[in-house]
Design a protein around this nucleic acid. Structure first.
Lengths: 180, 180
DNA sequence: GCTACCTATGCAACCAGTTGCAGTGCACCT
DNA sequence: AGGTGCACTGCAACTGGTTGCATAGGTAGC
Protein backbone atom coordinates (compact mmCIF):
# COMPACT_ATOMS: atom_id res chain seq x y z
CA UNK A 1 0.00 0.00 0.00
CA UNK A 2 0.91 3.58 -0.32
CA UNK A 3 -0.52 6.07 2.16
CA UNK A 4 2.66 5.54 4.16
CA UNK A 5 4.67 6.25 1.07
CA UNK A 6 2.61 9.22 -0.01
CA UNK A 7 3.23 10.72 3.42
CA UNK A 8 6.93 9.92 3.28
CA UNK A 9 7.21 11.64 -0.11
CA UNK A 10 5.40 14.70 1.20
CA UNK A 11 7.41 14.81 4.44
CA UNK A 12 10.68 14.46 2.59
CA UNK A 13 9.87 17.57 0.60
CA UNK A 14 9.07 19.41 3.82
CA UNK A 15 8.56 18.47 7.50
CA UNK A 16 5.10 19.10 8.88
CA UNK A 17 2.36 18.23 11.33
CA UNK A 18 -0.52 15.87 10.66
CA UNK A 19 -2.83 18.76 10.14
CA UNK A 20 -0.51 20.46 7.66
CA UNK A 21 -0.12 17.20 5.79
CA UNK A 22 -3.87 16.85 5.53
CA UNK A 23 -4.04 20.36 3.98
CA UNK A 24 -1.20 19.52 1.59
CA UNK A 25 -2.91 16.33 0.52
CA UNK A 26 -6.00 18.35 -0.31
CA UNK A 27 -4.11 20.22 -2.95
CA UNK A 28 -1.27 18.11 -4.27
CA UNK A 29 -0.57 14.43 -3.66
CA UNK A 30 -4.22 14.10 -2.73
CA UNK A 31 -5.39 14.12 -6.31
CA UNK A 32 -3.60 10.85 -6.79
CA UNK A 33 -4.00 9.58 -3.27
CA UNK A 34 -6.77 11.21 -1.25
CA UNK A 35 -6.60 10.89 2.54
CA UNK A 36 -8.48 12.30 5.50
CA UNK A 37 -6.81 13.75 8.58
CA UNK A 38 -7.78 10.75 10.74
CA UNK A 39 -6.11 8.41 8.37
CA UNK A 40 -3.02 10.58 8.27
CA UNK A 41 -2.81 10.84 12.06
CA UNK A 42 -3.11 7.12 12.47
CA UNK A 43 -0.49 6.34 9.87
CA UNK A 44 1.87 8.96 11.31
CA UNK A 45 1.63 7.37 14.75
CA UNK A 46 2.26 3.94 13.25
CA UNK A 47 5.26 5.18 11.32
CA UNK A 48 6.55 6.93 14.43
CA UNK A 49 6.37 3.66 16.36
CA UNK A 50 8.13 1.89 13.51
CA UNK A 51 10.89 4.51 13.50
CA UNK A 52 10.21 5.71 9.96
CA UNK A 53 9.56 9.26 11.18
CA UNK A 54 10.43 11.30 14.28
CA UNK A 55 8.39 14.09 15.78
CA UNK A 56 9.13 17.23 17.75
CA UNK A 57 6.41 18.75 19.85
CA UNK A 58 6.06 22.43 19.17
CA UNK A 59 4.20 24.73 21.53
CA UNK A 60 2.26 27.47 19.83
CA UNK A 61 0.43 30.27 21.51
CA UNK A 62 -3.21 30.70 20.81
CA UNK A 63 -3.20 27.29 19.20
CA UNK A 64 -2.89 23.68 20.31
CA UNK A 65 0.58 22.22 20.37
CA UNK A 66 1.56 20.47 17.21
CA UNK A 67 3.82 17.57 16.41
CA UNK A 68 6.09 18.26 13.51
CA UNK A 69 7.24 15.10 11.80
CA UNK A 70 10.46 14.54 9.91
CA UNK A 71 11.52 11.47 7.95
CA UNK A 72 14.08 9.29 9.75
CA UNK A 73 16.74 7.12 8.13
CA UNK A 74 14.51 4.05 8.28
CA UNK A 75 11.79 6.00 6.51
CA UNK A 76 14.13 7.04 3.72
CA UNK A 77 15.21 3.43 3.34
CA UNK A 78 11.61 2.28 3.18
CA UNK A 79 10.83 4.94 0.63
CA UNK A 80 13.59 3.90 -1.75
CA UNK A 81 12.64 0.28 -1.30
CA UNK A 82 9.08 1.08 -2.27
CA UNK A 83 10.07 3.32 -5.17
CA UNK A 84 12.00 0.43 -6.72
CA UNK A 85 9.10 -1.99 -6.27
CA UNK A 86 6.46 -2.54 -8.95
CA UNK A 87 3.02 -1.08 -8.35
CA UNK A 88 -0.32 -2.49 -9.50
CA UNK A 89 -1.82 -0.37 -12.26
CA UNK A 90 -4.79 1.62 -11.05
CA UNK A 91 -8.31 0.50 -11.74
CA UNK A 92 -11.32 2.69 -12.28
CA UNK A 93 -14.02 2.45 -9.61
CA UNK A 94 -17.00 4.67 -10.25
CA UNK A 95 -20.52 3.99 -9.03
CA UNK A 96 -21.82 6.28 -11.76
CA UNK A 97 -20.99 3.65 -14.35
CA UNK A 98 -23.02 1.09 -12.42
CA UNK A 99 -25.92 3.54 -12.26
CA UNK A 100 -25.79 4.17 -15.96
CA UNK A 101 -25.64 0.47 -16.64
CA UNK A 102 -28.74 -0.02 -14.52
CA UNK A 103 -30.52 3.15 -15.65
CA UNK A 104 -33.35 1.38 -17.47
CA UNK A 105 -34.27 -0.46 -14.25
CA UNK A 106 -35.13 2.87 -12.63
CA UNK A 107 -35.65 6.34 -13.98
CA UNK A 108 -33.36 7.24 -16.89
CA UNK A 109 -34.35 10.87 -16.27
CA UNK A 110 -32.96 10.76 -12.74
CA UNK A 111 -29.76 9.04 -13.80
CA UNK A 112 -29.30 11.72 -16.44
CA UNK A 113 -29.65 14.41 -13.77
CA UNK A 114 -27.09 12.58 -11.67
CA UNK A 115 -24.66 12.50 -14.57
CA UNK A 116 -25.11 16.22 -15.08
CA UNK A 117 -24.33 16.76 -11.43
CA UNK A 118 -21.15 14.69 -11.67
CA UNK A 119 -20.21 16.56 -14.82
CA UNK A 120 -20.40 19.83 -12.90
CA UNK A 121 -18.37 18.43 -9.98
CA UNK A 122 -15.63 17.15 -12.26
CA UNK A 123 -15.59 20.40 -14.21
CA UNK A 124 -15.07 22.27 -10.93
CA UNK A 125 -12.16 20.06 -9.94
CA UNK A 126 -10.73 20.51 -13.39
CA UNK A 127 -10.86 24.27 -13.00
CA UNK A 128 -9.12 24.02 -9.64
CA UNK A 129 -6.30 21.97 -11.18
CA UNK A 130 -6.01 24.34 -14.13
CA UNK A 131 -5.79 27.24 -11.72
CA UNK A 132 -2.92 25.56 -9.89
CA UNK A 133 -1.27 24.85 -13.21
CA UNK A 134 -1.47 28.50 -14.31
CA UNK A 135 -0.26 29.76 -10.95
CA UNK A 136 2.51 27.28 -10.14
CA UNK A 137 3.67 26.21 -13.58
CA UNK A 138 3.11 29.09 -15.98
CA UNK A 139 6.00 27.97 -18.18
CA UNK A 140 6.07 24.17 -18.15
CA UNK A 141 8.63 23.87 -20.94
CA UNK A 142 11.48 24.97 -18.71
CA UNK A 143 10.80 22.56 -15.86
CA UNK A 144 13.32 19.98 -14.72
CA UNK A 145 13.71 17.35 -12.01
CA UNK A 146 11.39 17.44 -9.04
CA UNK A 147 9.39 20.38 -10.28
CA UNK A 148 8.86 18.65 -13.60
CA UNK A 149 7.59 15.57 -11.76
CA UNK A 150 5.18 17.64 -9.72
CA UNK A 151 3.91 19.28 -12.85
CA UNK A 152 3.41 15.93 -14.56
CA UNK A 153 1.43 14.62 -11.61
CA UNK A 154 -0.81 17.64 -11.84
CA UNK A 155 -1.18 16.96 -15.56
CA UNK A 156 -2.45 13.51 -14.63
CA UNK A 157 -5.14 15.08 -12.47
CA UNK A 158 -6.08 17.46 -15.27
CA UNK A 159 -6.27 14.67 -17.82
CA UNK A 160 -8.36 12.44 -15.57
CA UNK A 161 -10.90 15.19 -14.92
CA UNK A 162 -10.98 16.20 -18.58
CA UNK A 163 -11.71 12.64 -19.48
CA UNK A 164 -14.51 12.37 -16.91
CA UNK A 165 -16.10 15.57 -18.19
CA UNK A 166 -15.86 14.48 -21.81
CA UNK A 167 -17.42 11.13 -20.98
CA UNK A 168 -20.28 12.78 -19.11
CA UNK A 169 -20.87 15.03 -22.12
CA UNK A 170 -20.96 12.07 -24.46
CA UNK A 171 -23.40 10.26 -22.18
CA UNK A 172 -25.63 13.30 -21.69
CA UNK A 173 -25.88 13.91 -25.41
CA UNK A 174 -26.60 10.26 -26.20
CA UNK A 175 -29.27 9.95 -23.50
CA UNK A 176 -31.00 13.15 -24.63
CA UNK A 177 -31.02 11.98 -28.21
CA UNK A 178 -32.38 8.58 -27.17
CA UNK A 179 -35.10 10.31 -25.23
CA UNK A 180 -36.40 12.29 -28.18
CA UNK B 1 -21.75 1.46 -1.25
CA UNK B 2 -22.36 -0.29 -4.46
CA UNK B 3 -21.09 -3.85 -4.84
CA UNK B 4 -24.56 -4.95 -3.78
CA UNK B 5 -26.03 -2.72 -6.43
CA UNK B 6 -23.59 -3.73 -9.12
CA UNK B 7 -24.54 -7.36 -8.47
CA UNK B 8 -28.25 -6.51 -8.49
CA UNK B 9 -27.88 -4.78 -11.86
CA UNK B 10 -26.02 -7.74 -13.28
CA UNK B 11 -28.45 -10.30 -11.84
CA UNK B 12 -31.45 -8.38 -13.13
CA UNK B 13 -30.07 -8.65 -16.64
CA UNK B 14 -29.59 -12.38 -16.18
CA UNK B 15 -29.70 -14.82 -13.23
CA UNK B 16 -26.42 -16.53 -12.39
CA UNK B 17 -24.16 -18.19 -9.85
CA UNK B 18 -21.46 -16.46 -7.86
CA UNK B 19 -18.82 -17.87 -10.10
CA UNK B 20 -20.57 -16.73 -13.26
CA UNK B 21 -21.01 -13.30 -11.79
CA UNK B 22 -17.31 -13.11 -11.05
CA UNK B 23 -16.59 -13.92 -14.73
CA UNK B 24 -19.13 -11.35 -15.88
CA UNK B 25 -17.58 -8.71 -13.66
CA UNK B 26 -14.25 -9.43 -15.26
CA UNK B 27 -15.55 -8.27 -18.58
CA UNK B 28 -18.37 -5.80 -18.11
CA UNK B 29 -19.47 -4.08 -14.91
CA UNK B 30 -16.05 -4.88 -13.54
CA UNK B 31 -14.37 -2.08 -15.43
CA UNK B 32 -16.35 0.36 -13.35
CA UNK B 33 -16.57 -1.76 -10.25
CA UNK B 34 -13.98 -4.55 -9.96
CA UNK B 35 -14.71 -7.38 -7.54
CA UNK B 36 -13.15 -10.73 -6.66
CA UNK B 37 -15.09 -13.95 -6.29
CA UNK B 38 -14.76 -14.00 -2.50
CA UNK B 39 -16.27 -10.57 -2.27
CA UNK B 40 -19.11 -11.59 -4.57
CA UNK B 41 -19.85 -14.78 -2.64
CA UNK B 42 -19.95 -12.93 0.63
CA UNK B 43 -22.23 -10.21 -0.66
CA UNK B 44 -24.53 -12.77 -2.31
CA UNK B 45 -24.94 -14.61 0.97
CA UNK B 46 -25.66 -11.35 2.77
CA UNK B 47 -28.22 -10.35 0.18
CA UNK B 48 -29.79 -13.80 0.34
CA UNK B 49 -30.20 -13.44 4.11
CA UNK B 50 -31.66 -9.99 3.62
CA UNK B 51 -34.12 -11.36 1.07
CA UNK B 52 -32.82 -9.24 -1.82
CA UNK B 53 -32.04 -12.35 -3.87
CA UNK B 54 -33.16 -16.00 -3.89
CA UNK B 55 -31.11 -18.99 -4.96
CA UNK B 56 -31.81 -22.39 -6.48
CA UNK B 57 -29.26 -25.15 -6.05
CA UNK B 58 -28.44 -26.81 -9.34
CA UNK B 59 -26.68 -30.16 -9.51
CA UNK B 60 -24.22 -30.57 -12.35
CA UNK B 61 -22.31 -33.68 -13.27
CA UNK B 62 -18.57 -33.56 -13.38
CA UNK B 63 -18.76 -30.21 -11.64
CA UNK B 64 -19.63 -28.92 -8.20
CA UNK B 65 -23.24 -27.93 -7.60
CA UNK B 66 -23.97 -24.33 -8.16
CA UNK B 67 -26.35 -21.83 -6.67
CA UNK B 68 -28.13 -19.74 -9.24
CA UNK B 69 -29.31 -16.44 -7.86
CA UNK B 70 -32.27 -14.34 -8.99
CA UNK B 71 -33.31 -10.90 -7.81
CA UNK B 72 -36.29 -10.90 -5.44
CA UNK B 73 -38.86 -8.14 -5.03
CA UNK B 74 -36.96 -6.61 -2.11
CA UNK B 75 -33.85 -6.49 -4.28
CA UNK B 76 -35.66 -4.69 -7.06
CA UNK B 77 -36.99 -2.20 -4.50
CA UNK B 78 -33.51 -1.64 -3.11
CA UNK B 79 -32.13 -1.18 -6.59
CA UNK B 80 -34.61 1.55 -7.52
CA UNK B 81 -34.04 3.24 -4.18
CA UNK B 82 -30.31 3.31 -4.84
CA UNK B 83 -30.68 4.42 -8.45
CA UNK B 84 -32.59 7.49 -7.31
CA UNK B 85 -30.00 8.35 -4.66
CA UNK B 86 -27.04 10.65 -5.35
CA UNK B 87 -23.60 9.09 -5.65
CA UNK B 88 -20.26 10.61 -4.67
CA UNK B 89 -18.21 11.49 -7.75
CA UNK B 90 -15.29 9.14 -8.20
CA UNK B 91 -11.79 10.09 -7.17
CA UNK B 92 -8.59 9.03 -8.79
CA UNK B 93 -6.35 6.78 -6.68
CA UNK B 94 -3.15 5.76 -8.39
CA UNK B 95 0.09 4.89 -6.64
CA UNK B 96 1.95 5.64 -9.85
CA UNK B 97 1.31 9.34 -9.33
CA UNK B 98 2.85 9.09 -5.87
CA UNK B 99 5.87 7.31 -7.32
CA UNK B 100 6.34 9.94 -9.97
CA UNK B 101 6.04 12.66 -7.38
CA UNK B 102 8.76 10.97 -5.34
CA UNK B 103 10.90 9.90 -8.29
CA UNK B 104 13.82 12.18 -7.49
CA UNK B 105 14.13 10.57 -4.04
CA UNK B 106 14.95 7.26 -5.67
CA UNK B 107 15.93 6.29 -9.16
CA UNK B 108 14.18 8.29 -11.87
CA UNK B 109 15.32 5.58 -14.29
CA UNK B 110 13.41 2.92 -12.38
CA UNK B 111 10.28 5.03 -12.08
CA UNK B 112 10.42 5.63 -15.81
CA UNK B 113 10.56 1.88 -16.40
CA UNK B 114 7.60 1.46 -14.10
CA UNK B 115 5.62 4.04 -16.04
CA UNK B 116 6.42 2.24 -19.28
CA UNK B 117 5.15 -0.97 -17.72
CA UNK B 118 1.91 0.69 -16.67
CA UNK B 119 1.59 2.21 -20.11
CA UNK B 120 1.74 -1.27 -21.63
CA UNK B 121 -0.80 -2.64 -19.14
CA UNK B 122 -3.27 0.17 -19.79
CA UNK B 123 -2.77 -0.18 -23.54
CA UNK B 124 -3.62 -3.87 -23.25
CA UNK B 125 -6.80 -3.16 -21.34
CA UNK B 126 -7.66 -0.52 -23.89
CA UNK B 127 -7.29 -3.06 -26.68
CA UNK B 128 -9.53 -5.49 -24.82
CA UNK B 129 -12.23 -2.83 -24.47
CA UNK B 130 -11.91 -1.81 -28.11
CA UNK B 131 -12.25 -5.44 -29.11
CA UNK B 132 -15.47 -5.72 -27.13
CA UNK B 133 -16.66 -2.49 -28.71
CA UNK B 134 -16.03 -3.76 -32.24
CA UNK B 135 -17.61 -7.13 -31.52
CA UNK B 136 -20.65 -6.13 -29.48
CA UNK B 137 -21.37 -2.63 -30.76
CA UNK B 138 -20.23 -2.42 -34.38
CA UNK B 139 -22.84 0.24 -35.16
CA UNK B 140 -23.23 2.44 -32.08
CA UNK B 141 -25.38 5.06 -33.81
CA UNK B 142 -28.42 2.82 -33.84
CA UNK B 143 -28.35 1.88 -30.17
CA UNK B 144 -31.19 2.66 -27.81
CA UNK B 145 -32.18 2.03 -24.20
CA UNK B 146 -30.33 -0.61 -22.23
CA UNK B 147 -27.94 -1.48 -25.02
CA UNK B 148 -27.05 2.18 -25.44
CA UNK B 149 -26.33 2.42 -21.72
CA UNK B 150 -24.08 -0.62 -21.85
CA UNK B 151 -22.25 0.85 -24.78
CA UNK B 152 -21.77 4.16 -22.98
CA UNK B 153 -20.35 2.40 -19.94
CA UNK B 154 -17.87 0.65 -22.18
CA UNK B 155 -17.01 4.03 -23.69
CA UNK B 156 -16.17 5.20 -20.19
CA UNK B 157 -13.72 2.34 -19.82
CA UNK B 158 -12.19 3.14 -23.19
CA UNK B 159 -11.85 6.82 -22.38
CA UNK B 160 -10.29 6.14 -18.98
CA UNK B 161 -7.67 3.82 -20.45
CA UNK B 162 -6.99 6.18 -23.35
CA UNK B 163 -6.40 8.93 -20.88
CA UNK B 164 -4.04 6.79 -18.79
CA UNK B 165 -2.05 5.82 -21.85
CA UNK B 166 -1.84 9.41 -23.08
CA UNK B 167 -0.66 10.59 -19.68
CA UNK B 168 1.99 7.87 -19.53
CA UNK B 169 3.20 8.94 -22.96
CA UNK B 170 3.41 12.56 -21.90
CA UNK B 171 5.35 11.59 -18.78
CA UNK B 172 7.70 9.24 -20.62
CA UNK B 173 8.55 11.86 -23.20
CA UNK B 174 9.10 14.56 -20.62
CA UNK B 175 11.29 12.37 -18.42
CA UNK B 176 13.39 11.26 -21.40
CA UNK B 177 13.86 14.84 -22.50
CA UNK B 178 14.82 15.88 -18.98
CA UNK B 179 17.34 13.09 -18.86
CA UNK B 180 19.22 14.22 -21.96
C1' DG C 1 1.88 -40.40 -13.80
C1' DC C 2 2.51 -35.46 -12.54
C1' DT C 3 1.50 -30.74 -12.82
C1' DA C 4 -1.45 -27.24 -13.78
C1' DC C 5 -5.53 -25.00 -14.65
C1' DC C 6 -10.75 -24.59 -14.70
C1' DT C 7 -15.33 -24.86 -12.51
C1' DA C 8 -17.39 -24.09 -8.11
C1' DT C 9 -17.90 -22.91 -3.26
C1' DG C 10 -16.54 -20.92 0.95
C1' DC C 11 -14.05 -19.46 5.74
C1' DA C 12 -10.95 -16.63 8.45
C1' DA C 13 -7.73 -13.17 9.23
C1' DC C 14 -6.19 -9.04 8.07
C1' DC C 15 -5.69 -4.35 6.27
C1' DA C 16 -7.23 0.10 4.75
C1' DG C 17 -10.54 3.59 4.47
C1' DT C 18 -14.87 5.96 6.39
C1' DT C 19 -17.73 8.11 9.81
C1' DG C 20 -18.86 10.01 13.97
C1' DC C 21 -17.46 12.00 17.90
C1' DA C 22 -14.78 14.82 21.38
C1' DG C 23 -11.96 18.50 23.25
C1' DT C 24 -9.22 23.13 23.35
C1' DG C 25 -8.77 27.91 22.35
C1' DC C 26 -8.57 31.90 19.42
C1' DA C 27 -10.68 35.05 15.88
C1' DC C 28 -14.35 37.03 13.72
C1' DC C 29 -19.03 38.29 12.88
C1' DT C 30 -23.62 39.62 14.48
C1' DA D 1 -23.03 37.20 24.62
C1' DG D 2 -23.41 33.67 21.27
C1' DG D 3 -22.49 31.23 17.09
C1' DT D 4 -19.41 29.78 13.46
C1' DG D 5 -15.17 28.45 11.72
C1' DC D 6 -10.38 27.29 11.93
C1' DA D 7 -6.20 25.12 13.82
C1' DC D 8 -4.89 20.97 16.16
C1' DT D 9 -5.13 16.48 18.15
C1' DG D 10 -7.06 12.01 18.69
C1' DC D 11 -10.22 7.54 19.75
C1' DA D 12 -13.59 4.01 18.53
C1' DA D 13 -16.57 1.54 15.71
C1' DC D 14 -17.62 0.11 11.42
C1' DT D 15 -17.48 -1.23 6.59
C1' DG D 16 -15.47 -2.86 2.62
C1' DG D 17 -11.67 -4.98 0.15
C1' DT D 18 -7.53 -8.20 0.00
C1' DT D 19 -5.08 -12.45 0.77
C1' DG D 20 -4.39 -16.97 1.92
C1' DC D 21 -6.21 -21.16 2.39
C1' DA D 22 -9.30 -25.46 1.84
C1' DT D 23 -11.98 -28.71 -0.87
C1' DA D 24 -13.06 -31.46 -4.99
C1' DG D 25 -13.53 -33.53 -9.46
C1' DG D 26 -12.57 -32.86 -14.49
C1' DT D 27 -9.64 -31.74 -18.45
C1' DA D 28 -5.27 -30.85 -20.89
C1' DG D 29 -0.53 -30.95 -21.66
C1' DC D 30 4.38 -33.01 -20.79
Amino acid sequence: MALEHAILVSLTERAGSGYELARRFDRSIGYFWPATHQQIYRVLRRMDEAGWVKHTEIAQDGRPDKKVYRVAAAGRAELSRWLAEPEDPAVLRDGLGVKLRGASLGSVELVLKEIERHRAEHATRLEVYRGIQRRDFPKPSGLRGRELHQYLVLRGGVRAEESFVAWCDEVIEALRKDNR
